[in-house]
Simulated scan of single mutants.
Amino acid sequence: MPPPLKKIVIIGPESTGKSSLCEALARHYQTGYVPEYAREYLLQKGTRYKPEDLTAIARGQLALEDRQTAAANAAGHQYLFIDTDMYVMKVWSEFVFGHCDPWILDQIAQRHYDGYLLCRTDLPWTSDPLREYPDLESRDRLFHIYRDCLINQSTPWIEIGGEGEARVAAGITAVGRLLQ
């Protein structure tokens, strides 16, 4: 019987390399990953979203996570990397609309993860029609909000910085430290 699946979440502000890091870690560990559902949703529905859209995105993200978790378990994988969780939905909701759907908060309390990687804002901004905050001040403010979320919960976490292969190497080292 394989060991239980370890779930590592990658979070942080926009344009901090979360998706790239998630994919690189999945390749390195020869496992699956959960992409960010918001991208798919916003490409279909458009970027003029309301609070209820964020709840729909949160539900879609968790459904995708549940499918990928089942697939990783069935394949006997040791790790699953997750690009975005309900902390991201909480921060996004509160930052844009000033409040968060209680259902999202309930999901934060109910879900279990084995570690978090918090991506720093040390990468250059990459323009994307779905991104909203190109200024470093907003991105740094969001980084500190994410950091506060992680400080105030019990799952271990590590900040990740650096560019390119250095960032991936930092992620690999962090996964090793988180799961010792």
Rank of each mutant, 00 (worst) to 15 (best):
W103K: 10
A72H: 02
L105P: 00
D122R: 14
V91L: 07
R131L: 10
D106M: 09
Y113H: 13
T121I: 10
T84Q: 06
Y87I: 15
Q110M: 10
D128Y: 10
D101R: 03
D101N: 15
L118T: 01
I104M: 07
F97N: 00
L80P: 09
K90D: 10
R120C: 09
L130D: 13
H77R: 12
W92A: 00
A109M: 05
D114R: 09
W125Q: 06
F95I: 03
Q107V: 06
E94A: 02
I104G: 04
E132M: 11
E94S: 01
W125C: 02
D114W: 10
P129F: 00
V96F: 03
L80R: 07
Y116S: 01
D101C: 08
F95L: 03
H99M: 07
P129A: 03
S93Q: 09
D85S: 14
P124F: 04
R131G: 05
A72G: 08
R120Q: 15
I108C: 14
P129H: 02
P124S: 12
G115D: 01
H99D: 14
L118R: 06
W103R: 11
F97M: 10
D122E: 14
I108P: 02
V91G: 06
C100P: 00
Y87N: 09
R131M: 04
M86C: 12
L123V: 00
H77A: 13
H77V: 03
C119F: 09
Y79W: 11
W125N: 06
Q110E: 11
Y116G: 04
A109D: 11
P124Q: 13
T126G: 06
D83A: 10
R131V: 02
S127L: 02
Y79I: 10
P129M: 08
D106L: 11
D122L: 14
R131K: 08
R131E: 09
L130K: 11
G115T: 05
G76L: 05
A74N: 09
R111D: 12
E132Y: 02
D128P: 15
Y79G: 10
R131D: 07
N73L: 14
E94L: 04
I82Q: 04
D122V: 14
L118N: 08
A71R: 04
I82F: 02
G98I: 05
D101L: 11
N73K: 15
T121K: 03
M86I: 03
